[in-house]
């Protein structure tokens, strides 16, 4: 194996079953998603069948199996955000991006996803774009932020 990031993740793992989820997390952190090829490599290293790996990975909401868009938008769907109008933010994003939750926009610029809670409930509703959390959002504020990303 060459010294690409994927193989170093695999080499650094202890090779035990317990490592499966951490390895999947690291692979996704590097590659952006879990590809068929990486499942194959993980399967050989951890000696777990590809089917089994798929079974575990699909159980957890964190893992995705298609390449991500350029920017990752997460709308919080926690209770506080829901009560403060999170649903309207989803409607707005789906309309503005012409994509449904869980999809990537046609130009590959944005992924639209939901998250159970980001722990900023006191500042609800919140939306996370890449690593930045935007708090106390309104439909209009969200549209402004979105425009900044669209133009960038």
């Amino acid at each position: 194996m060459a010294s690409n990031p994927l193989s170093s993740i695999l080499e650094n793992s202890s090779g035990s079953r317990e490592d499966l989820i951490p390895v999947l997390q690291k692979v996704q952190a590097v590659e952006g998603f879990i590809s068929k090829e990486s499942v194959g490599l993980i399967s050989r290293r951890l000696k777990i069948s590809e089917n089994e790996i798929h079974g575990v990975a699909t159980f957890y909401a964190q893992f995705r199996f298609t390449p991500p868009g350029e920017h990752h938008i997460l709308v919080c769907m926690g209770t506080a955000c829901h009560v403060k109008g999170g649903a309207q933010l989803v409607i707005t994003l789906e309309h503005e991006l012409d994509a449904k939750t869980g999809e990537t926009t046609e130009d590959g610029k944005f992924d639209l996803d939901q998250v159970a809670c980001l722990g900023c409930c006191a500042l609800a509703p919140v939306v996370k774009i890449d690593d930045k959390i935007y708090s106390q959002m309104s439909v209009l504020k969200l549209r402004q932020v979105l425009d900044e990303y669209k133009e960038a």
């Binding site: 079953r17 317990e18 490592d19 989820i21 079974g55 575990v56 957890y60 909401a61 964190q62 893992f63």
Partner: peptide, 22 residues
């Protein structure tokens, strides 16, 4: 690190998750 499953806060599910299972 958890991987985005609410049920994994339940203790027996949490154990499964640490072991690398669903």
């Amino acid at each position: 690190q958890g991987a985005g499953a609410f049920v994994c806060g339940e203790e027996t599910a949490l154990l499964q998750s640490i072991e690398g299972m669903r």
